[in-house]
Design a protein around this nucleic acid. Structure first.
Lengths: 241, 241
DNA sequence: AAATAGATTTCGTCC
DNA sequence: GGACGAAGTCTATTT
């Protein structure tokens, strides 16, 4: 793939040429971008309208659509992967329609002016290598169980309980059952509730009246979470990710 | 703003020209896009590396950076608003560096080949108008409290408890305190935990041994959530958004 | 397709 | 700036 094949772009294209470039790009599984003055309407899980303004629209070959303004990490409107796109010209307006079912959702972008159109053939063989996730934290604890406390012995990960899968299930130096809930960031009340559900479920599951220890492992906790931990008789171990 | 002023783009630009266009765009608060074969390295709350491949990079005037592959709604790498960008050419490699502090994070994009560069002046005076949110649901319930049950009387929204603010606080036909937790989608165990915390906190707050009803209002609940509701003595009312 | 929880979640709002 | 919860969250994994 030579560079001249990989990119086709036009600045201030006539509307019919813009449509043609976009249509060809979509049909050839290219990544297509359009910049111009447009309105955006969405209807599906919710509903939204967006009056005229300059936005950058990206259509990916997997059916994703992203509409970006000049601000924010998040697109102002979008369509998730798997949607089908359709481009047309209606009354001198370049129109992009993206739809999906389950749930039924439709995105409509109408360009009063198209300033720029480009299509890109994308070759990307690489996978992202990410570290510092909760899974990395789990592996570290399994390698060094004493990070939780001396004598802690992991027995299984993803142990199933009626309340869901526990991050790490094990026992302490005294043979008491221990549920460990890992978080890579500072935690609030939600994580305490999660841990409490696991502990409750496991106590019933074991149905031998043996109480189960619950340990929340995270860099830190909020005040309210700390209070909840105390109320529920749960413990906290500080561990940086 | 005429179209010729709003877009400056180059396909297969010489590397030094690419740098110049990007730098000028960043300096003039334009939205800048680069497409080419690049590697991406991130270090901050987590760490990641991404080997060479074709990606679309967008720099927004608010300091956002988005790196998109040909798949997925989410960028493969990014930097949130507020970052400072720096572009340079090092050993024939166009390099974009984006940094922020609190937390310290850095994104490094290095282009082995630049296929396309464009800068866009964005004029966008409009705000998104969105409906079908949880807030809309709350307003509907306040307008028609009988949607919860006959005789329900809302007393306040955002009522503060030691566990956080309750969506709707009110009383039933018998004058019993009611906590309503609203969700616009089908809910799982987390929402039940949230409601349970509010009910508990309120029962203590009122400290008159009067038990408090907790009602989860959502389109539907999962099986596990339904079980948890029963265990906690909480109720469910189905309401479409 | 549903369920469950993580995410470099981001975003808004309130304190 | 921290805390808390919503989001058209998305995404991966498992059932």
């Amino acid at each position: 793939m030579t560079p001249t094949e990989s990119v086709r772009s036009r600045t201030n294209p006539p509307i019919e040429l813009a449509r043609s470039v976009v249509e060809t790009g979509l049909a050839s599984d290219a990544l297509v971008t359009i910049f111009g003055d447009c309105t955006v309407d969405y209807e599906g899980r919710a509903e939204s309208t967006l009056g005229p303004g300059d936005r950058h629209v990206m259509c990916k070959p997997d059916g994703t659509v992203l509409v970006h303004t000049d601000e924010g990490h998040q697109p102002v409107n979008w369509q998730p992967p798997g949607c089908t796109h359709e481009v047309s010209v209606e009354e001198s307006t370049l129109t992009l329609r993206s739809e999906r079912s389950t749930p039924a959702e439709e995105l409509l972008v109408q360009f009063r002016d198209v300033d720029h159109v480009a299509t890109f053939d994308v070759t990307d063989p690489e996978e992202l290598s990410l570290s510092g996730t909760e899974e990395d934290l789990r592996e570290r604890v399994l390698d060094e169980p004493e990070l939780i406390e001396p004598g802690f012995t992991p027995l299984s990960t993803e142990r199933e309980t009626p309340a869901g899968a526990v991050d790490i299930y094990g026992e302490d130096a005294n043979g008491r059952a221990v549920v460990v809930e890992l978080k890579r960031r500072r935690v609030g009340p939600d994580a305490v509730g999660q841990l409490a559900r696991y502990v409750e479920a496991l106590e019933r599951d074991l149905h031998d009246d043996a109480d189960v220890r619950g340990i929340l492992v995270a860099p830190s906790v909020t005040d309210r979470a700390r209070t909840l931990l105390a109320e529920r008789g749960l413990e906290f171990v500080s561990l940086e990710p």
